[in-house]
Amino acid sequence: MAGASRFAAAVAIVVVIAGLTLLPQFSGEYGVQIGFRLLIYIVLGEAWNLLAGYCGLVSLGTSSFIGIGAYVLVGVLNAADVPISITLVGSGLVAAIVAFVVSPALFRLRGLYFTVGTLALGEALRLFMINASFSGGAGGWFLNAPSPSTNALFYYAIGLLAAATIVISACTQTRFSILLRSVRDDEDAATQMGVRAFHVKLAAFIIASFLMGAAGGLQAYKLGAIEPYGMFGMQWTIDVLSLVIIGGLGLRLGPVVGAIIVIALGEYLADYPELHIAITGVILIVIVRFAPKGILGLGLQLARWLTAPRPASGALRSGAPR
């Protein structure tokens, strides 16, 4: 059963990704723009879900790695004529290296302290980039390379999502997933089972940071101009966390559902950005309280409830007067 549903999910993902490549043929410029954002959000959401949902590392440092990826991409493209795909890998690699460097300090912190530590990391990087002279300070950098077409960007995003899907599936559908979840559920019990918890967390952190870095790079390629307030801004952290929690923390397809909801809400309230974020906050609070597994979890529960045999109602019927 589990194998079948896993296969079905894989097929669904492939079909969706293949279908997405056709989108520019049917939708206008606007549709492709939205599609690009959706894809970036799904990639970021999957990366964050790997950390928080599968490994229990609730990070508020998402923007750090997005920002690093963005600066690496612009820096590299401005300095040399490197193919974009290789530059994106570079963005991811540098983000992963930064994650590796800060991990000994961050992993000394457990639970809430880890969360606060990642928040401080993001803030520290932002302040650093605002003040550092090499990065152009608060003004940031302009990309000198010619700006890509919307469709080209969209195809790069599909490529990134495909890569992310493969990497995340490799983590969440394999033996590694079991080690990840054991650390999430009870780190002490896991180490007593011989799990090298530090290495497991490090692997998840590096993979997630790589994906966030690459996504940040692609976002910078689209923008053509980057500055620290935007690329290292809290907004990324808020959006990514919200979309995963709203969609379904720890569920493979939670980020997809969440990204669709968050982007739809954002588009619907596009003229009222503050209201949009405030409403996101309300939804977040409601989900945390009433649906710890998000909208997708709620849907799955509903589906199970609908398909499950209900002895209670049967008993009621038999007990009714004839």
Partner: peptide, 25 residues
């Protein structure tokens, strides 16, 4: 553990595999 501490969200089989995979991945 005196008070059992299984990995609650994982299946029985997966609980065992934590040890198996950590030992011989």
């Amino acid at each position: 553990y005196q008070i059992p501490r299984p990995f609650l969200d994982m299946s029985v089989e997966e609980n065992l595999k934590v040890a198996q995979f950590s030992l011989s991945p």
